[in-house]
Design a protein around this nucleic acid. Structure first.
Length: 204
DNA sequence: GCATGATCATTT
DNA sequence: AAATGATCATGC
């Protein structure tokens, strides 16, 4: 796929290319999934379960810097007792990622955006250690029922931000008193600073 | 609502 | 301009 445009790939697959991604935010990722035959569907598994590979498109700007952070997985706000970094879903997904850089300048028509050279990556021991520190810091706040204070400011490479249909969406959680409450769903995201240096390191 | 795929749009 | 918080689509 490298070197092809999204429009060319979509045409070959018989898929209509949207004029804008405003109402098709996941379109690029789904297009690449179909081309590569990802089969995990909407199950909480890596895109290629047998290979344990997670597929992620990475939107790239003119300067070849990622234009967006990368969603990794939902933050477990309930039923999270006993979950450690080692056993977390976020670690399982980041264990092996096939990154597909794709041009994403908003000025560039979706159909004309070129697919870049893929990168099959796994975190180094040092990176894993930073993720673990972030994970522990962020999950500690969840454990103490401090979801409201859990802003995107925390975390070196991993951060927590809303992951919901809108700000009114609710999911079960626990407050600071250990009482059940309904609260905003949150997700783990990789900061741009991380994917930025990842690209610099591997493509420079 | 939840899990998938993310980007949009407002605030800093 | 970059980062944070909010949002969009789809299939159960």
């Amino acid at each position: 796929m490298a070197g092809q445009t999204l429009g060319q790939l979509a045409l070959r697959l018989g898929i209509t290319t949207p004029r804008t991604l405003q109402r098709a935010k996941g379109w690029t990722g789904e297009l690449i999934e179909r081309q590569l035959g990802a089969y995990a569907g909407s199950t909480p598994q890596p895109d290629f379960p047998d290979l344990k590979i997670e597929l992620k498109t990475l939107p790239i700007g003119i300067n070849s810097v990622p234009t967006e952070s990368t969603f990794v997985s939902v933050v477990p706000l309930a039923d999270n007792i006993g979950i450690t970094w080692q056993t977390s879903a976020v670690r399982a997904k980041l264990a092996r990622v096939l990154w597909i850089p794709v041009q994403a300048d908003r000025q560039l028509a979706v159909a004309d955006r070129i697919i870049g050279t893929p990168l099959l990556w796994s975190p180094s021991a040092r990176e894993d250690a930073v993720f673990e520190t972030d994970f522990n810091e962020l999950m500690e706040m969840v454990a103490f029922g401090r979801m409201q204070d859990l802003s995107a400011h925390y975390g070196t490479w991993l951060q927590v931000r809303p992951k919901a249909a809108n700000a009114k969406a609710l999911t079960p959680g626990f407050d600071a008193n250990g009482q059940r409450v309904m609260t905003l769903p949150l997700g783990f995201y990789l900061r741009r600073a991380f994917t930025r240096q990842l690209l610099e390191r591997h493509y420079a």
